[in-house]
Write a protein that binds this DNA or RNA. Sequence first.
DNA 1: CGGGAGATTGACTGATCTCAACCCGGGTGG
DNA 2: CCACCCGGGTTGAGATCAGTCAATCTCCCG
Lengths: 234, 234
Amino acid sequence: MKPHNPPSARECFIDNASIFRHLSHDELAKIPIDQEPDFYKRGTIIYSEGSRIYGFYCILRGIIKIYKTGFDGKEQIIRFAKKGDIMGFRSTINREPACTTTQVLEDAYICFVHADVVLEFIRQNGNFALELLQIACKELGEANDYITDIAQKTVRERLAEAIIHLRKEFDLDKDYYLQITLTREELANIVGTATESVIRLLSEFKQDGLIELTGRKIKVLDEKTLHKIANMNG
Amino acid sequence: MKPHNPPSARECFIDNASIFRHLSHDELAKIPIDQEPDFYKRGTIIYSEGSRIYGFYCILRGIIKIYKTGFDGKEQIIRFAKKGDIMGFRSTINREPACTTTQVLEDAYICFVHADVVLEFIRQNGNFALELLQIACKELGEANDYITDIAQKTVRERLAEAIIHLRKEFDLDKDYYLQITLTREELANIVGTATESVIRLLSEFKQDGLIELTGRKIKVLDEKTLHKIANMNG
DNA sequence: CGGGAGATTGACTGATCTCAACCCGGGTGG
DNA sequence: CCACCCGGGTTGAGATCAGTCAATCTCCCG
């Protein structure tokens, strides 16, 4: 079940791109970097909205879906987390219960760092604090864009935009399909619409030669036109 | 025009609720806390989306509308800032152009703190960094709620919710009307709908005895029912 | 008094949602 | 081995929420 080549936790803490890259040797000594990262199987819920969480989750491998549950039980996908991303810092820092649920979409290896350690690092190491602030601010900017899009764009525009985002965020597989596979319902929960609407629009896009569909796999054929449909800046 | 009792900048930096409360005397010495805060008249745009900004804005008095401009020029209000709030930290920290426009709704006094100083404080003073992180994370949580609401709720629900939020965030005047006055269009730009829809729904709420309207002033009469209509948790 | 911005109202349209039926492929239990 | 079930995926029809357009009204101001 579990593959035989788990990544080393060191990847997560010592890598150049890691938020922990600014830590000194002494500081690094406080995290169990030699411990094996935890393995989470597809479908596992790592933590749920409303539950207490006790620290950070750093993704080493895999894909996590992060969502909120609306009033009528419908899920709204807020973002995805993948290699190099962290989850749970909002709750850790504000000492509040989680405001999202996180579920594994693709088998994942994850390191956990306890809140006390993180808070100590923030206080002790200015560069680490700044790094975290930058991550939070980046997400904040993306969230603001998201709000504006959902409030003002049509479903068609948002779906085109979502596909482009997915293409930018995730790799392609060997056949140039998006690496991430989502059900139509999950796509609908990104865009904020009904499953049936996504289905209809996807087959329109396919008719128009913008994408190719094979089961849940999506291949982008004409990014330029998708961009135009999405009325995007970025 | 400009009132005769400007607040002292000291309020902003030494107050208990201020994000600067953790600064030492030496650190405080680096900000011109004895300088008079800047006065901005209603209607003034403090900075625009896409422009470079060079630091933080700390609101001492007044109300600021923070919004993004969508593809077709329609504004989407992201939040309001008032006494004790800060603006512009996202761009300051990520060294990016502003992603929102900020416009004065109610005559304001504002202190400006240069980016270099802020970044130095973040690096030097862990408690200050943590304070900022908490603000960023709080906003992030609110943004996520906002996304879910806009994506899943009807206009009617969102308008009810918006009114409740305004009531929580702002004081009431002597007649128990909401202190903040917004045009119907601005209300529509919070909710993410058309002006006409807001007008129709407001008069429905009025018919139902939930609110009272006097020009642009709104008085909440039946918060409980509004809550119910909004399907709110908080 | 004329002009302009914002507020209102009505009529119409249409993008989406909802509901319901049906399909398809995989897995399971008899 | 086969019937059945179940979770998605599709499709169609009908209902409706909410956006657009246009006319009118009401203030407020110079």
